[in-house]
Design a protein around this nucleic acid. Structure first.
Length: 490
RNA sequence: GGUCGGAUGGCCGAGUGGCUAGGCACAGGUCUGCAAAACCUUUUACAGCGGUUCGAAUCCGCUUCCGACCUCCA
C-alpha cells in the first residue's frame, strides 16, 4: 500500500485514511482513570497511538493529539455501595481525592515518558471541564434524548435507537442488550430511576458523602463516565474530527455512549475513524486481580515481581509492544520479553555499525526495496511487526557488509542509515537507553579493562581471567571484541 | 445466555489461495589464550474433521478449546 490505510472499527473495514483538513489530523485517545498505579494494561494504548502520531508527523501532517485524564470517579460496579472510585481510594489512604488523581497522573506520565511517548498536545482533565459537560448534557436534553430523574440525568437509549444505530460500533443489537440487561447480580445505584435498564447516566446526583461534586442545573452531582470524552473532544477537536482511539474494552459501553451523546447533540458521529487496540495477557491468561498476575509498570522496570525473572527496560517494553500488531492480543512472558530485549540490542548494534560502513562501487543488496516494504507495512494498518522484520533484514545486511562478506555502495549506506534513523528512531520511537553508569564508573571500568588488556598482552592469563571473573561476580559482563573490550551491567 | 475476536514450529509473533515472515531458543560455523559476547548459516508449523479448488495456514461448514465485552476496566 502506498498510502496509509487504517482499520475502522465503526465500518469493520480497513479504509484509506483521509483527513478532514489538508495535512492536519485531530486525534483523540481515551486516557487513564487515575485512581491506581499504572499497570501493563495501561501501556499499550499510549505506545500504539504514539507510533501512529509519529507516523503522521513523518508523513507531513500536523497532529493535534488530545488524551484525557479521568480524575472524576465513576460508579463502582462491583462494590455494594456505589461510591465514587476516587473517593474510595482516598478514604483508604486518608488523602484528598485530587491528591490521589495527581499522584497517579504523575506516575502515568512518568511511565510513558520513559517509554519515549510524546506528550499529548492537550491533556484535559475531566474535573476541569464540568461546565462543558453540563452544557452538553443540557443540549442533549433539549434535543429530547435525555431525561432528569431526582437530580440525575439519563440518556434515553430506546428513544435514540428509533432513528439511530445505537449498537453499531460494538456490533450489538439493542434487543439483545435489553434481554441481557439486569440479569446479573450487578446492582447499580439508581437503576430503578431509569426508564430502561440500558439507559446510562449523563449526570449523577451526589450523596452528601461524595467529596467530588459540583453544582449543576439538576443539583449537586458529578458527570457520567462517557460525557467527559464527548465534551472534551468536541471542545478541542471540533464536532467532527479524524480519529478516536482506545482499548477494545471501551467499545461498549464507553465509545458506544460517546457516539450516541455526540450524535444526539450534533447530529453525527464525532469521529471518522475509530481505532481500538487489543488487550494484553500474561502467560496466556488475562490479567486480573483474582489471578494475582497484575504487574505494575514500575515492577516490570525494576524486575520486582514474583512472575518476573529479571527487570525489563522501558525501551524493551516499547519494542515488545510493537513486535505484535496492535489489534491482536499481546502475551507477556519472561521468554517473550527476553526475546524482545535481545532482538532490540541486535538492532541497536546494527544501527551503530551502519554509521561507519565503507562504500564499494557496486552493491550486493537492494536496500530500496526494504525501505519500500517497510512503508507498505506501516501503511497497512500500522503493521509494525512486519516493519520490524524488515529492520532485522537491514540489520543483517549491515552486519554482512561490516564483516566484509558483502558489498554496498554509498547510496545503499545512506539508505540503511535513513532506515535506522527514520523508521526505528523517529517513527517507532525506539531510542538507545542511556547507560545507568556515570563518569566515575566509566573511568574505573576503563582502567580495569586496560589493566586486563595489558595482562593479556603479557600472557598473564591468570590475572586477566581474575579481573574478568571478579567483575562478572559483581554483575559486569565483559565483551571482548576485535577493537578491544567493552562492558555492560547485567 | 447474547455479541465479537482468536487457535501458526520449543516460546513470542507476521502472513489471507501457489512464492523465506521476523525475533528468541536449539544446532553448525567464524572470531578468540580460554570463555563469553558479536556475527554468519540453519531445522521444526499452520487446533481437529469434512468441503470448494489444479492447488488451502489462507475460502466454506461443523467440532473442540481459549479470550474479550454485556453499564469499573487499558
Amino acid at each position: 500500500m502506498t498510502t496509509l490505510h487504517l482499520y475502522n472499527t465503526y465500518s469493520r473495514k480497513t479504509e484509506e485514511f483521509r483527513s478532514i483538513h489538508d495535512k492536519i489530523v485531530g486525534l483523540y485517545v481515551c486516557g487513564p482513570t487515575v485512581y491506581g498505579p499504572p499497570h501493563l494494561g495501561h501501556v499499550r494504548g499510549p505506545v500504539v497511538f504514539d507510533v501512529l502520531r509519529r507516523y503522521f508527523l513523518h508523513l507531513g501532517y500536523k497532529v493535534r493529539h488530545v488524551r484525557n485524564i479521568t480524575d472524576v470517579g465513576h460508579i463502582v460496579g462491583d462494590a455494594d455501595d456505589g461510591e465514587d472510585k476516587l473517593q474510595k481510594q482516598a478514604a483508604l489512604e486518608q488523602i484528598q481525592p485530587m491528591e490521589v488523581a495527581q499522584i497517579y497522573t504523575l506516575s502515568y506520565n512518568e511511565m510513558i515518558r520513559q517509554m519515549n511517548v510524546l506528550p499529548p498536545s492537550i491533556e484535559p482533565l475531566a474535573s476541569g471541564h464540568i461546565i462543558e459537560q453540563i452544557e452538553m448534557i443540557e443540549s442533549i436534553i433539549k434535543a429530547g434524548f435525555a431525561y432528569e430523574v431526582h437530580g440525575s440525568v439519563y440518556f434515553d437509549v430506546i428513544g435514540y435507537s428509533k432513528n439511530h444505530e445505537y449498537g453499531k460500533l460494538s456490533g450489538r443489537v439493542l434487543d439483545d442488550l435489553m434481554a441481557g440487561a439486569g440479569n446479573e447480580s450487578r446492582e447499580l445505584e439508581g437503576q430503578d430511576e431509569k426508564r430502561n435498564a440500558n439507559d446510562f447516566a449523563l449526570w449523577k446526583k451526589a450523596t452528601p458523602e461524595h467529596i467530588m461534586q459540583w453544582s449543576s442545573p439538576w443539583g449537586k452531582g458529578y458527570p457520567g463516565w462517557h460525557i467527559e470524552c464527548s465534551a472534551m473532544s468536541r471542545k478541542y477537536l471540533g464536532d467532527t474530527f479524524d480519529i478516536h482511539g482506545g482499548g477494545m474494552d471501551l467499545l461498549f459501553p464507553h465509545h458506544t455512549g460517546e457516539i450516541a451523546q455526540s450524535t444526539a447533540c450534533t447530529g453525527h458521529n464525532p469521529a471518522n475513524y475509530w481505532m481500538h487496540h487489543n488487550m494484553i495477557t500474561i502467560n496466556g491468561q488475562k490479567m486480573a486481580k483474582s489471578l494475582n498476575n497484575g504487574i505494575q509498570v514500575t515492577e516490570l522496570f525494576s524486575g520486582n515481581h514474583p512472575l518476573l525473572e529479571q527487570a525489563y527496560s522501558p525501551m524493551t517494553l516499547r519494542f515488545f509492544i510493537l513486535m505484535a500488531h496492535y489489534r491482536g492480543t499481546l502475551d507477556f512472558s519472561n521468554e517473550a520479553l527476553k526475546a524482545a530485549e535481545k532482538g532490540l540490542q541486535r538492532l541497536f548494534n546494527a544501527a551503530e555499525l551502519a554509521k561507519n560502513l565503507v562504500a564499494s562501487d557496486s552493491s550486493d543488496f537492494d536496500i530500496k526495496s526494504i525501505e519500500t516494504s517497510i512503508y507498505a507495512s506501516l501503511n497497512d494498518d500500522l503493521n509494525t511487526p512486519q516493519a520490524i522484520a524488515q529492520l532485522f533484514e537491514a540489520a543483517r545486511i549491515t552486519n554482512v557488509v561490516n564483516d566484509g562478506k558483502g558489498k554496498i555502495n554509498a547510496e545503499g549506506i545512506q539508505l540503511l542509515q535513513h532506515i535506522f534513523s527514520e523508521i526505528l528512531t523517529n517513527i517507532l520511537g525506539i531510542i538507545p537507553e542511556s547507560n545507568t553508569s556515570n563518569n566515575a564508573l566509566d573511568g574505573v571500568m576503563q582502567m580495569l579493562l586496560n589493566m586486563r588488556k595489558q595482562a593479556k598482552e603479557e600472557k598473564n592469563y591468570a590475572l586477566s581471567d581474575q579481573i574478568r571473573n571478579q567483575l562478572s561476580e559483581l554483575g559486569f559482563e565483559i565483551k571482548d571484541g576485535k577493537d578491544g573490550s567493552s562492558w555492560s551491567l547485567v
